[in-house]
Computed example of a mutant assay.
Amino acid sequence: MHRYPPRHAATPIHRTVRTLATAATALLLLIIGTVSASASPSVPRGAKPTIVLVHGAFADSSGWNADVAALQRLGYPVVAAPNPLRGLTRDADYVRSVLQTITGPIVLVGHSYGGAVITNAARSVSNVKALVYVGAFVPARGESIATVLDPTVYPGSLLGPDTVALRPFPDPAVAGGVDYDLTIKPAAFRSVFAGDVPAASAALMAVTQRPLSLTANTEPSGEPAWQTIPSWDLITLDDHAIAPAGQRFMAQRAHAHIRTVRSSHAVMISHPDAVVRIIVEAAQQS
């Protein structure tokens, strides 16, 4: 007579199957945990915020080189976001897409027209903890960089028909299919933009400047992020692109923490120490 094992007894085969099943479950849980961790990376407690730098018109991200190096030496992660300079809404949408790839707190910095861009790009991005304006436009809703400052009230800017050149280019995204590039005439570049930068460096900047479209110059700003996000503003007192008195008006209206420096418009190049100082202040206090 054959003796069968009890119904619930574990035979060697049963034990092997059970072991394999347990191992498979553990492996599956490990994979799920790894995928979840990759999808939602944790931010170490006390980690420094990421500094995102947005350049303005007639410039590119290389203007931040000295500032990036100094911030990295202090242990800050830094992103220099390229600004398309094609239209305020388009530019803000692009910068916002960069912000949305960053985990953890962000200090968002804008120079010149880049100030108008960060004013719109930070809207609805919850991890932007501070805005820093550097010789920048700080528009309210409905204002463009062409309309925010009345030159009869805030004189001092040298930007105008004598110093700015216009060049048409096709753009199907604008009415009529044609937009215009604005550049500073090379002979005027140093006096308008970079008065305290060595002449040879300013001459190179004039050649490599990136144009601002007329659309970007005239497009109205949306609801400003500075209404809900703390802001800092470094006013450039020797600026001949954006009148210093106009900068102060915009900064005060935004209830920004105001600092000043005796600098031309190219402050991130001529006075990177002042720029880094206000960024660190915003990072530590936000």
Rank of each mutant, 00 (worst) to 15 (best):
P244L: 10
V267G: 03
L29N: 02
A130I: 07
K185H: 06
L85Y: 02
R73I: 08
P224V: 01
Q100P: 03
P5R: 01
F137E: 01
A47M: 13
L234A: 05
V275Y: 04
A136V: 08
L99E: 12
I145K: 08
A266H: 04
Y94D: 08
S62E: 15
D181P: 00
S264E: 05
P211Q: 00
P244T: 10
M205Q: 15
V276D: 07
R210M: 08
I279Q: 13
T103H: 12
S40E: 14
V280Y: 03
A70Q: 15
A165H: 10
G63H: 12
V109G: 10
A165Q: 13
S221N: 09
W226A: 02
S263P: 09
T215F: 04
A9K: 05
H255L: 08
L30K: 00
S191D: 14
G160S: 10
G75L: 06
S263E: 06
L74D: 15
I269V: 15
T152P: 00
Q247G: 11
D196C: 06
V95Y: 03
S221W: 01
G177L: 01
A66E: 12
P172A: 15
G87L: 06
S112E: 09
S42V: 13
F58P: 12
I229S: 04
G176V: 04
L131G: 11
V68L: 14
A203V: 07
P49Y: 13
M250D: 08
V17T: 11
G142H: 08
V117W: 05
R15V: 09
R86A: 13
D239G: 04
W64M: 14
T183R: 10
P5G: 01
D233G: 01
F189P: 00
T208H: 05
D67T: 15
T215K: 14
F189N: 01
T183Q: 00
D196I: 05
A173N: 10
